[in-house]
Simulated assay, not measured.
Amino acid sequence: MTAPTPSELTYPDIEAAAARIAGRVRPVTVASAQPGTLAETASPTAATWSSGPAEDPNASGLLFALEFMQYTGTFKARGAQNFIRAHLEAGTFPEAGVTIASGGNAGLACAWAARAAGVPATVFLPANAPEVKVERLRSYGAEVVLTGHEFAEAAAACRDFVASSGALASHAYDHPLIAAGAGTLMTEILAQVPDLDTVVVSVGGGGLFAGVATAATYHGVRTVAVEPQSCRALNAAIEADEPVDVTVDSVASDSLGARRATPLALSAARSDLVTSVLVSDEAIVGARQHLWDEHRLAVEHAAATALAGVHGSGGYVPAEGEKVCVVLCGANTSLGDL
């Protein structure tokens, strides 16, 4: 038997993922950006803020999906659970366990999901990886292998390990099971806000975007894909009509720093209901600071990127009466600069 590996993502894939990971992840909370019930909210409009405290009187209708409260601190837990559980169901999980090259959010999620399933996980990191990440991975029971001084070297070592051990290779975002797991976030948002018009999500390699946009398009909901101006893998792929390499240079590149978008993300972006938006690092920093100053939400720059997309100059401007939900996708960040 083989685990499902479709060449494109469909809504039934996301429904299957939702059933597979039910009870294994935290359901997302959707909250208004201002006091009051959802029925009382009005349409948000674009606004501009500085990096300091700012009033935002036009955000009364804005909704936040608080996915940073997810296990391991990001949405990545969804895809990791779906990936591992699908292979366990299909009987394709090897004795050598699962492996991934990532010291970031994906590595943490993979190790956490493996521990929950009672299977081995081996995570490859550069030798100069922060000790706090290494210790957290080990706390999840992962075997941590430190090698080389760049991610590319760790990734190469991971590939060698797969070839020699037969371990199951996972990925941070470039796999349909990972993207389908991420898409379950959208099904949970719509269960709480069935009349939602628009969802706003930040984009790196495109796993979260592909899942969310596939589910959103199926339900007739618009998706706004937000990327840093100097970290625009999906935007460049849309322009070229194929995945292309881009430079990576942004304050949010630790999470959104993919050099190219996945084919799954580009396929999802071809919908007429998808809008691509680019924002400056200044807008990202300002959005993150605003979330802390005004809402006491400490998120990583990747999460703030999504909010910058509906408030920064040149961002998406909702129409009157449009109900918009911004996905705050992760909170694995240092509190020292808030």
Rank of each mutant, 00 (worst) to 15 (best):
P6M: 08
P6N: 07
S7T: 14
L9H: 04
P12W: 11
E15Y: 04
A18F: 02
A19E: 15
R20D: 12
I21F: 05
A22I: 04
A22Q: 13
T29V: 12
T29A: 15
T29S: 14
S32T: 12
S32H: 06
A33N: 05
Q34T: 12
G36K: 06
A46L: 13
N58F: 03
N58D: 07
A59S: 13
G61S: 08
A65G: 10
L66C: 12
E67G: 12
E67L: 06
M69Q: 15
M69T: 14
Q70G: 07
F75E: 01
I84N: 05
R85H: 09
A90V: 00
G91E: 09
T92Y: 00
T92A: 05
E95V: 02
V98Q: 07
T99P: 00
T99D: 02
A101V: 03
S102W: 00
N105V: 08
C110R: 00
C110D: 01
C110I: 11
W112R: 09
A113T: 02
A114C: 07
G118D: 09
G118M: 09
V119A: 14
P120F: 00
F124H: 03
P126H: 10
A127E: 15
K133H: 12
S139P: 05
Y140P: 08
G141C: 10
V144Y: 05
G148K: 11
H149T: 15
H149F: 11
E150L: 08
F151Q: 15
A154Y: 14
A156N: 13
A163S: 15
A163I: 03
S165W: 00
G166K: 05
H171R: 10
P176H: 08
A179C: 12
T187F: 03
I189E: 11
P194F: 01
D195M: 09
L196F: 07
D197Q: 13
S202K: 04
S202F: 00
V203E: 03
G204F: 04
G207M: 04
L208Y: 01
A210D: 08
V212F: 02
V212W: 02
A213H: 02
A216V: 03
G220D: 08
R222Y: 01
V224D: 08
V226M: 12
Q229H: 13
N235G: 15
N235W: 11
N235P: 00
N235E: 14
A237T: 03
A237G: 12
E239Y: 01
V244K: 08
D249Y: 01
A252T: 00
A252Q: 04
D254W: 00
G257R: 09
A258Y: 04
A258W: 01
R259Q: 14
R260M: 10
T262K: 02
A265Y: 00
A265S: 09
L266I: 09
S267Q: 06
A269L: 07
V274E: 04
S276V: 14
V277Q: 04
L278K: 01
D281V: 01
E282D: 15
A283C: 06
I284S: 11
W292E: 06
E294M: 11
R296P: 09
A298V: 09
A308K: 01
G309C: 06
G309Q: 03
H311V: 05
H311E: 08
H311T: 14
S313T: 15
G315P: 07
G315C: 05
P318M: 03
P318H: 07
G321A: 09
G321K: 05
E322I: 01
E322A: 06
E322R: 01
L335V: 10
G336T: 10
G336K: 08
